[in-house]
Simulated assay, not measured.
Amino acid sequence: MTAQPFLYVVVCAAGIAGDAHKLITAAHKQKWGVGVIATPQGLGFLDAEAIEAQTGYPIRSAWRSPGDPRPLPPADAVAVAPATFNTINKWAAGIADTLALGILCEAYGMGIPTAVLPYVNAAMAAHPAYGRSLDQLRDMGVLVGSYEPHRPKAGGGADRFRWEEALELLTPALVGKTAN
């Protein structure tokens, strides 16, 4: 690990995605470098100019062409926040049809500590695939946040979403990784 750990923040298309700057700010306070990877739909929820100014890196949402330089340093850890029903289920199933999902699937194989902060409503969370997917991710060693699903069509629970929980989950995992 370098002197400054580098965090990939994967942002999905959820109503609170525009607040991803809160996680970036918290990470910077803890001396993390940060790069943002957005799902294709998640990109539309972000103020790209502000995020890129805050991180110093371009937001990635598409595959780079062969021979293009890597725009981000290698990740020491990954935080998926907010994580949608769709991303959680595809990731657990090993579907890598977007850059964000490809990075998540690859992070497992590379042993990169990963935390996920789901942001789903209770109706979606009631679907049996969601619980199975969270169990699969936990079995893979993914650290799952504590957010409880919000009522559907009720404006979400942005006030209860703890962005900094991603760092709380990842810090002990990184300490353990560097001790080995």
Rank of each mutant, 00 (worst) to 15 (best):
8 Y>R: 08
163 W>M: 03
166 A>F: 10
97 D>E: 11
157 G>H: 05
101 L>W: 01
74 P>E: 13
37 I>V: 15
173 A>D: 07
36 V>E: 09
57 Y>T: 08
23 L>E: 02
176 G>H: 07
32 W>G: 02
163 W>Q: 08
8 Y>Q: 06
6 F>Q: 03
169 L>T: 00
66 P>K: 09
82 P>S: 11
15 G>Q: 13
126 A>R: 14
4 Q>P: 01
75 A>V: 08
144 V>H: 01
175 V>N: 05
104 L>P: 06
78 V>Y: 00
163 W>Y: 14
112 I>L: 03
123 A>W: 03
119 Y>D: 10
169 L>D: 09
70 R>F: 06
66 P>L: 13
168 E>R: 10
32 W>R: 07
36 V>K: 01
151 R>L: 13
131 G>F: 06
35 G>V: 08
128 P>S: 06
104 L>I: 07
92 A>L: 03
9 V>P: 00
144 V>F: 00
113 P>Y: 02
58 P>W: 01
9 V>S: 04
19 D>Y: 13
115 A>C: 10
16 I>W: 02
172 P>S: 03
159 D>V: 12
41 Q>T: 08
2 T>L: 08
50 A>W: 02
138 R>A: 15
146 S>V: 00
39 T>F: 08
118 P>A: 05
153 K>M: 11
56 G>Y: 08
136 Q>K: 15
86 N>P: 01
33 G>V: 01
83 A>T: 04
159 D>H: 12
156 G>L: 06
110 M>H: 09
68 D>E: 15
13 A>T: 09
54 Q>T: 05
123 A>E: 13
53 A>H: 04
41 Q>M: 11
155 G>S: 10
63 W>Q: 05
65 S>E: 12
101 L>T: 01
109 G>I: 06
1 M>S: 14
42 G>E: 11
162 R>I: 15
162 R>D: 15
111 G>P: 11
105 C>T: 13
137 L>Q: 08
105 C>I: 02
91 W>D: 14
43 L>P: 00
6 F>S: 08
133 S>Q: 06
19 D>G: 04
5 P>S: 02
140 M>P: 01
157 G>L: 11
128 P>Y: 13
51 I>K: 04
83 A>E: 08
123 A>N: 13
180 N>S: 11
155 G>L: 09
27 A>P: 02
38 A>S: 14
100 A>F: 11
135 D>C: 02
83 A>H: 04
3 A>L: 12
116 V>F: 00
53 A>N: 09
45 F>I: 04
98 T>R: 07
170 L>Y: 06
164 E>K: 11
117 L>V: 09
137 L>M: 09
19 D>I: 00
26 A>W: 03
135 D>W: 00
134 L>I: 12
140 M>D: 13
18 G>I: 00
26 A>V: 12
161 F>P: 09
143 L>V: 05
70 R>V: 14
80 V>L: 10
